[in-house]
C-alpha cells in the first residue's frame, strides 16, 4: 500500500450491543483534505478513536500505509505520524505558546533526552515559522491560559504541525468560533493540507464549503455518500437523513 494512505475496510465497533461503526470503509489519499459530516451518533468520533488507537475495532482493517493500526497503541500511532486535534482544545495552560509548540516538536521523547534537551537553532526557526503560520507570532511568550478560544484551537493545530504528521485528524475545529475565526481556520487547514493529509470532522456546512474539498457523509456508522459538497447536498439519501431535517 502507498505510504501515507489511510485505509479503513469493513470496520465495525460494537459497544454493549450498540453498533457505533457498521462496516465502515474509507480511503484517504496522501495530501488529501477531506471533510467528514454526519448527524450526531453517525460514528464520526468513534472513527477518529479507531484511527488513533483509543478504541479497538470489533472487526475490520485499519491501515496507514503498511502499518496495521489495530495492533499499535496510541503513542506508537502518534509516533507514526497521525496527529489528532480534539473537539475541546487541550493546550497546556501553565506553559507559554512557544513552550507548547516546543513540547510538540519532533524530538526524542524519553525522560533523559528531555532533561538534556537544548533547543537547536533550526528547531527554534521551525517553531517561529509555525507561530507565523497559525497567526500567533505575537503571542509566543503568553501563557496558553490567557488565549482566546480561537487562538487555543490554532495553537493546538500548530502543536500537531510541529509533530510533522502525515495525517491530521481535526475534530470540529470551528465550534464556538466567530465568523472571522472560522474563515481564518478554513484558510489555515487548506494551507496545511497538501504536504500532509487532513481529515476534518465538522457540523458547520458553510465551513465545509469554504474548505472546498471532497466530503464524506457518515450515517449510522457507515458511509452514506461521498463527493463534492454540492453533490452530497443534492443526494436524496443525505437530504433525508441529515440535511433535510
Amino acid at each position: 500500500m502507498k505510504a501515507g494512505t489511510l485505509y479503513l475496510d469493513g470496520v465495525s465497533v460494537v459497544f454493549d450491543g450498540f453498533r457505533a461503526l457498521n462496516s465502515l470503509s474509507l480511503v484517504i489519499e496522501p495530501g488529501e483534505l477531506r471533510a467528514i459530516i454526519g448527524p450526531n451518533g453517525a460514528g464520526k468520533t468513534t472513527m477518529m478513536d479507531i484511527i488513533t488507537g483509543k478504541t479497538r475495532p470489533t472487526a475490520g482493517t485499519v491501515q496507514f500505509g503498511d502499518h496495521d493500526l489495530t495492533r499499535m497503541d496510541e503513542a506508537a500511532i502518534a509516533e507514526l505520524g497521525i496527529g489528532r486535534k480534539f473537539q475541546k482544545p487541550t493546550v497546556f495552560d501553565a506553559l507559554t505558546v512557544f513552550e507548547n509548540l516546543e513540547l510538540a516538536l519532533k524530538a526524542p521523547r524519553d525522560p533523559w533526552s528531555c532533561l538534556r534537551w537544548v533547543l537547536p537553532p533550526a528547531a527554534r526557526r521551525r517553531i517561529e515559522a509555525t507561530l507565523a503560520e497559525i497567526g500567533l507570532a505575537d503571542r509566543a511568550g503568553a501563557r496558553a491560559a490567557i488565549l482566546s478560544h480561537g487562538q487555543r484551537q490554532w495553537l493546538e493545530i500548530g502543536m500537531l504541525l510541529m509533530q510533522e504528521p502525515q495525517l491530521l485528524l481535526v475534530d470540529e475545529p470551528v465550534a464556538g468560533m466567530t465568523d472571522q475565526e472560522t474563515e481564518h481556520t478554513a484558510a489555515l487547514l487548506r494551507r496545511i493540507a497538501g504536504q500532509r493529509s487532513v481529515v476534518v470532522v465538522e457540523h458547520d456546512l458553510e465551513f465545509v464549503r469554504a474548505l472546498g474539498e471532497k466530503v464524506t457523509v457518515l450515517c449510522e456508522g457507515a458511509v452514506l455518500s461521498e463527493g463534492s459538497i454540492d453533490r452530497v447536498q443534492n443526494d436524496p439519501r443525505v437530504i433525508e437523513v441529515y440535511l433535510g431535517r
Binding site: T52, E74, A75, A78, G83, R84, F86, F92, R109
Partner: peptide, 12 residues
C-alpha cells in the same frame, strides 16, 4: 495538567 494530551503528543 493534561496527561492524555501528553500521551497523544507521543510521550510515554
Amino acid at each position: 495538567d493534561a496527561e492524555s494530551r501528553v500521551r497523544f503528543l507521543g510521550y510515554s
